[in-house]
Design a protein around this nucleic acid. Sequence first.
DNA 1: CTTTCTGCAAAAGCTTTGCATTACA
DNA 2: TGTAATGCAAAGCTTTTGCAGAAAG
Lengths: 146, 146
Amino acid sequence: MPTMAKAGKELELLKQHLAKHNLKLTRQREQILNAFLKMEHVTAEQLYHILSKKDPHIGLATIYRTLKLLCETGMAQERHFGSQTLFDNVAHKGHHDHLICTSCGKIVEFQNCQIEQLQEEVAAQNGFTIQTHKLELYGLCAKCRS
Amino acid sequence: MPTMAKAGKELELLKQHLAKHNLKLTRQREQILNAFLKMEHVTAEQLYHILSKKDPHIGLATIYRTLKLLCETGMAQERHFGSQTLFDNVAHKGHHDHLICTSCGKIVEFQNCQIEQLQEEVAAQNGFTIQTHKLELYGLCAKCRS
DNA sequence: CTTTCTGCAAAAGCTTTGCATTACA
DNA sequence: TGTAATGCAAAGCTTTTGCAGAAAG
């Protein structure tokens, strides 16, 4: 059943991280992970509202604490867009960058291997080894331009 | 005297912006612009401390208000690194991107025309017209790797 | 003179922390 | 049974806003 194996991949990753740091898997952490994995990107507040419906006593602080854990595992990545702090789901689609419309706020994800390759070259020239990167292109989408 | 002309270029840009929006050029705005132009990137708090020495009664709110203006002219660009909000001086060196060491915090600026060209292509494919962009590469610098 | 700015202080986010209690392993 | 996690509320930061007096055009 490869489907089931795939479904639990992220949970396994979290379990590994928890075990390595002597932390515990809780009902809340699992709920937060599951809700997070369904989204492309979320704010802490958004997750809080989604989860509050199922579990009215969940705390916003727990969301923040768990999102920090997910960032440590590499599944999530913190990103600032305007005044909002978004947490990107990197597990789902792999790494992706963003095109952001400055007029309507529309966000398009994209990937480009050539750019990534050039990034590696630039880093090497400066003696750096890349761990991760963020690329955001701001402009006007087709609708807003016309 | 080309030197003087060059020195006032950014001030002219600010004056234009102010005129266009029916705003006024004040002593504080000029001071903040000058201090800002001397730096590669600063936080609002840093500018506040620098300027407090000359003018003990300057307000932090004025710094924030003026930095917002500088962003609108395009001379400054807001950037989030970790928990800090930095304001980049784009006027001085033109647009540049950043290599950031996740271990020691060292920041290296760079420019790469090929990457910029590819960005344009990606944007065009998605119907976007780019206004600006941010590229940050996070990793380990030579010292921290060894 | 009229409008905009400033500094101050208060307010408003958003995120983190302290603590008693609960849940995991 | 011993740690670690949770929820709540309070504290902490950074950034914004309201307002009366000051300054610019």
